[in-house]
Amino acid sequence: MTDVLFSEWLKLRSARSTQWILATVAGFVTLCAVWSFYIARYWDGLSPERQAKLQAAPAEHPLVLTLPLCMAVLGVLAITSEYATGLMRSSLAAVPRRGVLFAAKAASVGGVASATGLLSVGVAFGLGRLIVGDRAITDFRTPVSEELPWLLSLGLSAAVVALVGLGLGTALRSTAGAVTGLCVLLFVLPGLAPLLPAPWDERFAAILPSNLAEQIAGDAADPVLGPVPALLILLAYAVTALAAGLVVLKRRDS
């Protein structure tokens, strides 16, 4: 198992697409720093009354929007690139135990995605604090201990989205299909949720992956779910998608 895990880690690391995705994430971390810098300069130019009233999105905000998409693509490509090229046959010939191969893939994708998520969010947050310094900007002054659950759940969501991508990619064997599916889940459904009659609009919105991190951290203004149920639902996304992928992988010819 460790051999297969190392092999999958090597595969993920040596793929061009992974390098591009990580570079994109790094680019958005830089954008977070630029955003913080802009807010700091803007704050400096305001009168004391307006400074006190300033509401600014937190430093990590640009990343919150991009990270799930990047991780979705990472997870999907980890498997669909192998199907698209036919490399999957070589992989299965090298490791005929399909469950082992899939577990190793899930572990490497989950590991890389959670590390990327935690690191990028942490760095973006830290840079924001460093750049803003001792300016009393509302959303940049919350104690780190209060922000920690939010930052951790962002990192965890990144890993979950990547695993959903892996599971969906394995089940569909199509990059376009799996990425579209994830975009619907991450970006389209949150927009459609308000169309449902109350109270189903809020209930439905509450279980969508993009709204779970807030509820896990206990930051939501009017949460439908408590932190623990929200966490369980987030994990259920990964488990369901991976199970679907494993069933298809074990049953179908390659």
Partner: peptide, 10 residues
């Protein structure tokens, strides 16, 4: 099996 079954980016 298939010589083209390689990831072109590697």
């Amino acid at each position: 099996l298939d010589a083209n079954a390689v990831h072109s980016g590697r």
